[in-house]
């Protein structure tokens, strides 16, 4: 027989769990309802049109979609060699010891630096350097733009891929490694032919999660991408990602339809990140069961 206090306690923790659901559901519904005006106004061309012209009430988010995808892909491409190397070093060569703990702590600290500080540093240190490079290459020296943003983003997502990849690499059974060594394989051959193939799904999941981070990252990108609402013509051109468009324009948006359009951008951004994250987590969960 349960006492009244037990019932109250059970009800309270149930209430907490329900609150989580309410918040998540409320978020989805709020975003959807508030972007309805622009969806009605623009129809399919909200996603397909590349014409973002708030003055004339034209809202096509294609430039932001393209900007987001290019920046995120580029940053992943830049970060991949580094994060995988770090993961191999930590998961294979340095599995214990002071050096490993030190390196892991450094990686964790990198994940802890606030986005706005990455952006600030990028703006004042990296942008002038990129500008000089651009002058040498004979292109318009904006300094800010997709390329600069991708470098900073790459620095920011390395810790995520590296930590997950490291975890997966150290999950590879030692029997397999030893079998490789017994056949006379060198360390690199064991890594390339045994460890990486065995861990590749997990590494892919780590990359997906990093991709999700890169897409949703706001402040650093906002500060160095250049804030231009057109489809970028080169990787050195200024652009806007979905997140930076919202951050740059939300407080300036005067008309209701403009606000609704930015909320619509938020809705698309939200859906994309949720789907990518879900895929990444799904893969990781399945690996753990194995």
């Amino acid at each position: 027989m349960e006492g009244i206090k037990d019932r109250i306690f059970r009800f309270l923790i149930f209430l907490c769990a329900s609150t989580v659901i309410l918040i998540a559901a409320g978020m989805c519904i709020t975003l959807f309802i508030n972007s309805l005006p622009v969806l009605k106004h623009m129809g399919v061309s909200f996603i397909l049109s590349s014409d973002w012209d708030p003055v004339n009430n034209k809202f096509g988010i294609l430039p932001f979609l393209v900007g987001t995808l290019i920046t995120s892909f580029l940053s992943l491409l830049i970060s991949l060699p580094f994060s995988i190397s770090t993961a191999i070093l930590l998961g294979e060569y340095l599995r214990k010891g002071r050096m490993a703990i030190f390196l892991q702590n450094i990686i964790d600290l990198m994940a802890g630096i606030p986005s706005v500080i990455y952006g600030f540093w990028g703006l004042l240190v990296l942008v002038p350097i990129v500008q000089k490079v651009e002058i040498k290459l004979n292109i318009i020296p904006y300094g800010v733009g997709i390329f600069t943003a991708s470098i900073v983003l790459a620095t920011m997502v390395i810790p995520y891929t590296a930590s997950i990849a490291r975890e997966v690499i150290s999950l590879v059974p030692d029997d397999l490694r030893e079998a490789g060594y017994a056949l006379g394989a060198t360390r690199w051959e064991v890594i390339r032919c045994i460890v990486i193939p065995h861990a590749k799904t997990g590494i892919f999941a780590g990359v997906l999660l990093a991709f999700g981070r890169a897409i949703g990252e706001t402040m650093a990108v906002t500060m160095i991408i250049g804030n231009r609402n057109q489809i970028p013509k080169s990787i050195f051109a200024p652009a806007n990602t979905m997140a930076s468009a919202i951050a740059n324009q939300f407080t300036e948006a005067t008309s209701d339809i403009y606000v609704s359009a930015l909320i619509g951008v938020g809705l698309v951004l939200f859906m994309v990140t949720v789907i990518i994250n879900y895929a990444g987590r799904y893969i990781i969960k399945r690996l753990e069961i194995k």
């Binding site: 998540a24 978020m27 508030n34 949703g216 990518i276």
Partner: peptide, 23 residues
């Protein structure tokens, strides 16, 4: 509940700003 936690976890910070603004 787990799915909702995943959703909250993956929501970009700027979207949370929009939500708090609207709410």
């Amino acid at each position: 509940v787990r799915i909702c936690i995943d959703i909250l976890q993956s929501a970009p910070s700027i979207v949370l700003g929009i939500i708090a603004y609207l709410w």
